[in-house]
Design a protein around this nucleic acid. Structure first.
Length: 325
DNA sequence: AAGGCGGGGTA
DNA sequence: TACCCAGCCTT
């Protein structure tokens, strides 16, 4: 099975077994109720939301009742949840629905006040089965680990890359369950600290687990601070002198020695060095090893003669300098 | 691209 | 204490 297919199948099967019984999961086709739950869940834990959810919905059961209520009344039902602009936007959005009819397309949903990319995708996929990947903090973390991608998740570039990956992984036949499964995984297994990888349904397709880097992912660079990243650079040389390389994800157009690579045999430690680039401080261990007849995905053998013509990243050059070539 | 917006749980 | 959380909006 294709890699994304295996990932989907395992994740969804796991989700059906372990999914928590949450109030909003009992009315999965009601866009209004899903919307309310998604807004409440923004930056707010499930446990904190539950008591508010039922209370709010019995007082404001549909868009019309919400739109016509006094703002004070809406705020009173929100008091304690925080981020009160959410409540104001909720009411504003309700008044943006003609006749109290909840919009039926992603673009219309996305245009409502207080709804961004994440919430629009969540509501569209869960309530209507539309194929949009919902990418929240959980999903960013899961993808960083599954892909073993050290990109800074604060940067729009990285987010765009992760969103594209989420879109590829998405199960287009059951996008709602898939999105919830990704978030459930992030919330219960692939947690920020001490993820329980031994209980993870997609451990075998996780490059971060294979490389042992899951605990330092995702990378989140903070203001004025540098993130320390530890990588293991692999030098694999073929008998004819060809070197195992891959295109760099960070530095488009450049090639690099693979690092944090699974499935390398006969490891021999070569040395280590430090490298600082913008806000990232790398500690690089360098190893020499052998790979199987089939090279790891994304890598390829590059003949010695071609090496001089290729732009190599500085980290790769420093690593190669450590061996006698 | 950066800052503001709440409150609570967790290591 | 610091981080983190089913983010979004404004500047």
């Amino acid at each position: 099975m294709e890699a994304a297919g295996a990932f989907r199948a395992k994740l969804l099967s796991w989700y059906r077994n372990v999914r928590r019984d949450l109030p909003w999961r009992r009315t999965p086709t009601d866009p209004y109720r899903i919307w309310i739950s998604e807004i409440m869940l923004q930056q707010t834990r499930v446990a904190a939301v539950i008591p508010y959810y039922e209370r709010f919905l019995s007082r404001f059961p549909n868009p019309l009742s919400l739109a016509s209520a006094p703002e004070q009344d809406v705020l009173a039902h929100w008091a304690g949840l925080g981020y009160y602009s959410r409540a104001r936007n909720l009411q504003k959005a309700a008044s943006q629905m003609p006749g109290g009819e909840f919009p039926r397309t992603y673009d219309e949903i996305r245009a409502l006040s207080g709804i961004g990319d994440y919430t629009a995708a969540a509501v569209a996929s869960i309530a209507y089965g539309l194929p949009y990947a919902a990418v929240d903090g959980n999903v960013l973390r899961v993808i960083a680990r599954v892909e073993n991608d050290p990109g800074d998740i604060k940067s729009p570039k990285t987010r765009a890359r992760f969103a594209a990956i989420a879109d590829e992984l998405l199960d287009r036949d059951q996008p709602g369950d898939f999105n919830q499964a990704m978030m459930e995984l992030g919330a219960t297994v692939c947690t920020p600290k001490n993820p329980t990888c031994l209980l993870c349904p997609v451990r075998e397709e996780c490059k971060g687990f294979a490389a042992g880097t899951q605990n330092q992912l995702p990378i989140k660079i903070r203001d004025g601070r540098t993130a320390e990243v530890h990588i293991t650079v692999v030098i694999a040389e073929r008998d004819d002198g060809a070197l195992l390389l891959r295109p760099s994800k960070q530095l488009a157009g450049f090639w690099e020695l693979p690092f944090d690579l699974a499935g390398v045999r006969d490891l021999e430690r070569v040395g280590s060095f430090g490298h600082q680039i913008t806000f990232r401080k790398y500690t690089c261990d360098v190893v020499r090893g052998r790979v199987g007849r089939k090279v790891p995905v994304g890598t390829e053998w590059v003949a010695r003669e071609r090496l001089a013509e290729l732009p190599l990243t500085t980290i790769s050059k420093k690593a190669l300098r450590l061996v006698d070539r």
